[in-house]
Simulated assay, not measured.
Amino acid sequence: MSRCLAMHGIETSILTLDLGLTPDRLRGLGEVEVTALPCLLKRFYIPRFSPARIRELVRQADIIHLMNHWTLINAIVYTYMRRLGKPYVVCPAGSLIPYGRSQLLKRIYDALIGRAILRNASGHIAVIGSETPQFVPYGVSQEDVVVIPNGVFLDDVESTDPEAFRGRFGLGDEPLILFLGRLNSIKGPDLLLEAFIRIATRFPEYHLLFAGPDNGMLPMLTRRTIEVDLESRVHYLGYVDAQTKYDCLRSADLVVIPSRHEAMSIVVLEAGMVARPVLLTDQCGLDEIDSIGGGKVVAPTVEGLEQGLIELLSDPSNLGPMGETMKRYTLENYAWDAIGPKYIDLYSRILGSKQEP
């Protein structure tokens, strides 16, 4: 989003933690100025910061865009925005529903400052329409929430050589099922592994590739892979850069997004950009993929993913046309060229209303 705004001539800066800021990602931001705070405690994303520096960043901004919800950075920035009278918008991106660990801490956060952040915002953004009811418990009417989806840059698709990629990682010529993302419970890699185990005998030619950094699940996943004697067919690649990510996507016959909870999956759109069909759960925010014929949407369970795999792999001749459908759908609906102006319009309306007598 920031890169898109900068491309439209808007001076844009990012305040974030120094986690995952690879040279690849920084290069991808183009002219956007990035202030990365050192993370003192990864478990709770606690930053080390200079109050004077935060205050100055807030003072320089005309409008501020808060992403996510339960973060200390948002709370810190909010206190300075209120003092300086700065307008701001909030885009929780699906994070308003407490999920996973630390639910007590999240309730405390909401009671102390989280509800105020939502209630006092000048604008509220949902990335999909089904997210708008999540604002209501915070005192925000659904009618006051603007839906602006995530997007993709068409020129981000790196030129790739799937054959060389397969050779480099010893993947051979076998058909490939791809999981792309963090090995984290919320992303559901364990669900996919169990579903693959169930269909492995029925589809002995298929391999499963996990590409993405470990968030604590890798030992369990590899242990389970060894238990069922599938080490030769289940591969763990670890973190991948942008080039390797698109090598993975172009090498895949099917991309699976088995998330337990996610507002809107970018991986679905990235698969679409390279014409790959997808199997995703109904927690990914893109249920229409099923109706347009770009893949299949299932429940976020082992059984749901198992049945989805069986249906899609039983007739592999359909995978190519599904991928082409995904590409058309992605380009028509989720290119940043079309989405960026929606943000600019929202910001302009908010700033215009602040200037009215």
Rank of each mutant, 00 (worst) to 15 (best):
H69E: 03
L72H: 03
W70A: 01
I257W: 07
I289N: 03
T16W: 04
D337N: 07
H261I: 05
I54H: 07
S95G: 06
I64F: 01
Y138V: 09
L15I: 09
Q243M: 09
T225P: 10
A275G: 14
Q243K: 09
M81C: 14
T330N: 00
T222F: 08
V32K: 04
I10C: 11
L269W: 01
L105F: 07
G272D: 02
A200R: 14
S130R: 12
K245Q: 15
L37N: 00
V152W: 01
L218I: 04
T22P: 02
L221M: 01
E303D: 14
L118N: 06
I10F: 13
L41Q: 10
Y329C: 00
G114V: 06
D241Y: 03
A61R: 01
P23S: 15
G212K: 03
S102R: 07
P87D: 14
V268I: 15
A126R: 03
W336L: 00
L57K: 12
A121N: 03
L21P: 09
G304R: 12
P162K: 02
A61G: 05
P277K: 02
L346Y: 01
L279G: 14
D173F: 03
H8F: 13
V228F: 09
I289G: 04
E270N: 08
G188W: 09
L21G: 12
R107S: 10
V136R: 10
L105S: 14
P189R: 09
G151V: 01
L183Q: 02
H261P: 00
A111H: 11
M220L: 12
L180K: 02
F153R: 06
E231F: 05
F44W: 08
L193D: 13
Y239C: 06
A195L: 00
L309Q: 02
G20M: 05
I14N: 04
L305W: 05
G295H: 03
P47Q: 08
A242S: 14
R198K: 12
D337C: 08
R27F: 10
D282C: 07
M264N: 09
D247A: 03
G323S: 05
P341I: 09
F135C: 00
G100P: 06
S95D: 03
P51G: 01
T201D: 14
T225F: 04
T132F: 01
A126L: 10
E143M: 09
E131T: 05
L72A: 14
R43L: 12
N68F: 14
I186K: 11
M322V: 12
T22H: 00
L313Y: 11
T225N: 02
G123H: 01
P51V: 13
K187P: 00
L193S: 13
I125N: 07
E231A: 15
R83G: 04
V302S: 10
K327D: 13
L180R: 07
L279W: 10
H207A: 15
C4V: 07
F135K: 00
I289V: 15
L193Q: 13
K327G: 10
I257S: 15
G30E: 03
M7D: 14
D214Y: 05
V89A: 02
N184W: 11
V297S: 06
M1F: 05
L15N: 02
A195M: 04
V127P: 05
S159G: 03
A164F: 11
E11N: 12
V240W: 08
E56F: 08
V256P: 12
L66F: 14
V267A: 15
E33A: 13
T160S: 15
N333M: 04
V152G: 00
M326A: 11
S317P: 03
